[in-house]
Amino acid sequence: LRGKKKEELLKQLDDLKVELSQLRVAKVTGGAASKLSKIRVVRKSIARVLTVINQ
């Protein structure tokens, strides 16, 4: 992550946020259990990207 440019990080952040919103919709509509663990992974990925951006 640290080797990427800021523009790439921001694009990745947008993609992750879109994916997270889709997973939340799937959870509300009764999605599979595998998607519940994926939510945690995506949230941590967002946190990692934000950490690198803010450093």
Rank of each mutant, 00 (worst) to 15 (best):
K4E: 02
E7C: 04
Q12W: 13
K35V: 14
D15K: 14
T51F: 07
E7W: 13
R43A: 08
V41P: 01
A32T: 09
K6Q: 05
Q22A: 02
K38Y: 05
Q55V: 02
A47T: 12
L36K: 03
G31A: 12
S34R: 14
V41N: 11
G31V: 12
L9V: 09
R2W: 13
N54R: 13
R48N: 07
V49G: 03
L16A: 06
L13S: 05
I53E: 00
V49N: 00
L13W: 08
L16E: 06
T51C: 07
I53S: 00
K6T: 05
K38L: 07
T29N: 05
V42A: 06
Q12D: 08
Q12M: 15
K35F: 15
L13H: 06
A32G: 03
G30P: 06
R24C: 05
R43F: 12
E7T: 07
I53A: 02
Q22I: 03
G31E: 08
E8L: 14
S34G: 08
S45F: 11
K11Y: 00
I53V: 07
K27I: 05
V25A: 06
Q12K: 13
Q22K: 09
Q22W: 06
G31Y: 12
V18Y: 12
D14H: 11
R48E: 01
K35S: 08
K38I: 06
K4D: 01
A32R: 02
T29R: 01
A47F: 04
G31M: 13
E19R: 15
I46L: 10
E19A: 15
T29P: 07
G3T: 10
V28W: 10
G30Q: 11
L50N: 00
R48F: 00
Q22C: 06
E19F: 13
E19M: 15
I53F: 12
A47N: 06
K35C: 14
R43M: 05
L13I: 08
K6G: 03
A32I: 14
S37F: 14
S45H: 13
L1S: 09
A26M: 11
L16F: 08
N54M: 14
I39A: 04
Q12R: 13
A26N: 05
S21H: 02
R43G: 11
V41Y: 08
Q22D: 01
I53C: 06
T51S: 12
L9Q: 01
K17M: 06
Q12H: 14
E8Y: 13
I39N: 00
K35Y: 10
Q55A: 04
I39W: 06
S37E: 06
A32V: 13
L13M: 07
V18I: 13
I53Y: 00
V18K: 13
E8N: 05
V41Q: 10
R2H: 02
K11A: 04
K11F: 01
Q55K: 15
R43Y: 15
K38R: 08
R43W: 14
T29A: 14
Q55I: 12
V52R: 13
L10C: 06
G31W: 15
R43N: 04
L16P: 04
N54S: 09
L36A: 03
R48L: 00
G31H: 09
D15G: 11
K27R: 09
R40E: 03
K4R: 05
K44C: 02
S21F: 09
L50S: 02
V52L: 09
